[in-house]
């Protein structure tokens, strides 16, 4: 049921700045793939291209058989690709539960005007909040949650869209070690249930213990791909991180 994500020679530049140059990579269904690289190497740009926020200048992106190029972000979510943002984005003036209901697939006039929070959707939302240990906050305004809780809420809400591929942009950023351990556990558990992950992360400890394969991009191109150990030993990667 889960699908591979294939990015084929995607390029994107902003004015004269090339963010992605013929970037090709593949995320295999069922994997926890890491995307690493120095600051400004194009990781988030790639995320934005895949999720429809940017339209690439060239290249093709497929999810399974479906071509993603040219689709709008909301259409891509409904194909089964959900994402989180580098700077956590939640709806601060909505309750935690309302935050969870927004990503529920909403089609047709009939379902659109039925009550927002009810029935099995509510159960699913509460189940996920339970899973992430923030169910006790369900009626709080999301803006009042702590930073770590907001990150978990964003993750939980992304799951409400029933994705098969979850793209996380620096999920461990700013979290304390205890929270990072919890996060690792959640991702492993979801992955065991068949969820594919593509994760941008600067925390190398987190990447090395959780992800395989690791893809390294530098200046908009993939320069290495392999197991954490192999990537760490790759001279091109060291070069990219330590400067030319």
């Amino acid at each position: 049921m889960t699908k591979d994500l294939a990015v084929h020679s995607v390029a994107k530049s902003f004015g004269g700045v090339t963010a992605l140059a013929e970037c090709s990579l593949e995320v295999r269904a069922g994997s926890i793939t890491a995307l690493i690289g120095p600051n400004g190497s194009g990781k988030t740009t790639l995320f934005n291209c895949v999720t429809g926020f940017y339209r690439p200048d060239q290249g093709e992106m497929r999810f399974g058989e479906t071509v993603l190029t040219g689709l709008r972000p909301n259409q891509i979510v409904h194909l089964g690709i959900a994402r989180t943002f580098q700077i956590t984005r939640i709806f601060k003036n909505m309750t935690v539960l309302e935050n969870m209901i927004v990503p529920v697939r909403q089609l047709g006039l009939r379902t659109l005007f039925t009550a927002g929070i009810k029935g099995h959707e509510r159960e699913r939302a509460e189940g996920l909040l339970e899973f992430f240990g923030i169910a006790f906050l369900r009626d709080e305004m999301a803006g009042r949650l702590s930073f770590g809780q907001q990150k978990l809420l964003e993750l939980a809400a992304a799951l409400m869209a029933e994705p098969t591929l979850l793209m996380l942009d620096e999920p461990a950023g700013g979290l304390n070690p205890v929270m990072i351990d919890r996060l690792t556990g959640y991702i492993r558990e979801l992955n065991a249930d068949g969820m594919t992950f593509l994760i941008i992360e600067h925390n190398m400890g987190f990447v090395m213990q959780l992800c395989e394969p690791v893809i390294v991009i530098h200046r908009g191109r993939v320069i290495a791909r392999g197991t954490p150990a192999a990537v760490r030993a790759n001279p091109a990667v060291l070069d990219a991180y330590l400067g030319d």
Binding site: T51, F53, R72, P73, N74, V77, H78, A82, R83, F85, R89, I90, F91, V102, P103, R105, Q106, A157, A158, A161
Partner: peptide, 9 residues
């Protein structure tokens, strides 16, 4: 933007 990323048309 986040609404769109959440699947809202």
């Amino acid at each position: 933007g986040k609404a769109e990323a959440s699947g809202v048309n």
